[in-house]
């Protein structure tokens, strides 16, 4: 279940969190990436639970530090905890987040079945972020970061990243 943070936590805190972005994908805020699991506010103390996307992802440490920095100068003291359970899934990326990924040149994750077909059976499903053609080919299941695979467009020949479906 994804908690609607926008309507459950004070707007001031939400806005501070929404300013923190994924260091590898700076167009994606941690809210839209869906890594903020829960926020508890007691008076001026904020406790935040973060869900790692991939266990070894070095971006998680940076996000933790960036959250602490974002709250500097505010009236809140903040504590960030990484949690493993429940595990993050790519379904937690918001619609806004998916649109931002696409505009940035990273194809957003498709559904599990389509994802498997694209990554394992060479199906032409993932749309090129440059020209929109689905005539694309998997180059490598592992891309520039743990969360991405590398594709190339067979029409415009542009190489692009695909954010893998993780469930």
């Amino acid at each position: 279940m994804i908690i609607d943070l926008k309507h459950t936590i004070p707007a001031e805190i939400f806005d501070l969190l929404a300013k923190v972005t994924d260091p590898e994908i700076p167009v994606l805020s941690i809210i839209d990436l869906g890594v903020v699991h829960q926020v508890e506010v007691t008076q001026n103390e904020v406790y935040i639970e973060l869900m790692p996307t991939y266990t070894g992802c070095p971006a998680m440490d940076v996000m933790q530090e960036d959250i602490v920095k974002a709250f500097e100068g505010s009236n809140y003291s903040v504590q960030v905890q990484l949690i493993l359970s429940p595990a993050w899934t790519s379904d937690r990326i918001s619609q806004k987040g998916k649109a931002a990924l696409k505009a940035y040149g990273v194809a957003p994750p498709v559904e599990t079945t389509a994802d498997k077909a694209a990554l394992l059976e060479g199906a032409n499903i993932i749309a090129c972020t440059n020209c929109g053609s689905q005539h694309t080919q998997l180059v490598s299941q592992f891309g520039s970061t743990a969360c991405k695979a590398l594709f190339k467009c067979l029409d415009c020949l542009e190489p692009f990243d695909y954010f893998k479906c993780l469930k």
């Binding site: 991939y54 070894g56 992802c57 070095p58 490598s140 592992f142 520039s144 970061t145 743990a146």
Partner: peptide
């Protein structure tokens, strides 16, 4: 890249 990504996961 793939092998070092796997290393990172591990």
């Amino acid at each position: 890249i793939a092998l070092t990504n796997i290393s990172l996961d591990l």
